[in-house]
């Protein structure tokens, strides 16, 4: 096996252009599990841990190499909340947001936040830079529209993030758990809500009908909130697997969305 360890972005892009079939390694918290269990045996690895540009976090632009540990300590409320739920301290010290997007698991905990705020993903190659909206980038279970010669370089957040934003996930314990359902709700200054749900479809999804319904109600009455939760449960597309059932996930998605929305209203 050959391992390259570029220390700068240019060097990294060049290495990848020369070997687009290479396996990219960031924190290793997804990739090394596959290697340890013999699901993958890479011949050529490009390790990104030393690429300093990927570790930069400048306001709206969050480098792909920023770890969940740093995000957990950062200023963005729901982003810090979700980071705190990722794995354990050891996993957060190594795992990056770029790796979370590269893996593109339906349960990736950063995804509901990115969907709720309509974040973009920046990809770079020697051919240039593309910026894709979250739903153009995440296209299926563990599938993204990244080309082989492209690096995920950053997450680009919108100019203004709603101040009221909440994330939570449901799982069997409060640490070290892959989400059964995850949700992020944001409410902007005009009172308009956005609701994104993870682990209840091939990719993260927005509950558009529920958003529209609750945004058209001037009075957030009990009946309106119940209808909101019902619409979320209807709109999600969960499956039954070893972690949970479709029925439970639908129910939990509705309960979680309503709870987070009410928390937003109280702040």
């Amino acid at each position: 096996m050959n391992i390259e360890r570029p220390s700068g972005l240019e060097e990294g892009l060049e290495a990848l252009a020369a070997s687009p079939e290479a396996t990219l390694l960031a924190g290793g918290t997804d990739l090394m599990v596959e290697i340890n269990y013999h699901a993958r045996r890479p011949e050529h690895v490009i390790a990104l841990r030393r690429v300093k540009e990927l570790k930069e976090w400048d306001g709206r632009r969050l480098g792909a190499g920023v770890t969940f540990r740093r995000i957990e300590q950062g200023p963005i409320r729901a982003l810090a909340q979700l980071a705190r739920t990722v794995g354990s301290p050891q996993i957060r010290a190594a795992g990056t947001i770029g790796g979370n997007l590269g893996t593109a698991s339906p349960a990736g905990d950063s995804h509901p936040f990115l969907a709720a705020c309509d974040a973009h993903i920046e990809l770079q190659s020697r051919r240039g830079t593309r910026t894709l909206r979250w739903d153009e980038f995440l296209v299926g279970v563990k599938r993204t529209s990244r080309q082989d010669d492209e690096l995920i370089t950053a997450v680009v957040l919108p100019e203004a993030l709603p101040r009221r934003q909440e994330f939570a996930k449901v799982g069997v314990r409060s640490a070290m758990v892959i989400a059964t359902v995850s949700a992020c709700v944001m409410v902007d200054d005009e009172g308009q809500a956005r609701v994104a749900l993870g682990a209840v479809g091939p990719t993260v999804l927005r509950a558009r009908r529920a958003e529209e319904m609750i945004n058209s109600e001037s009075e957030k009455s009990d009946a309106a909130l119940a209808e909101f939760a019902r619409l979320v449960s209807e709109e999600v597309k969960p499956i039954t697997d070893h972690r949970s059932t479709e029925e439970y996930r639908r129910h939990a998605a509705g309960v979680l969305s309503r709870r987070l929305f009410e928390r937003c209203l109280r702040t």
Partner: peptide, 15 residues
């Protein structure tokens, strides 16, 4: 200086 799981660190990347 960071506490990590050494089973998830590729040795070649720890040089």
């Amino acid at each position: 200086g960071e506490a990590v799981c050494s089973c998830l660190v590729m040795a070649g990347d720890a040089a």
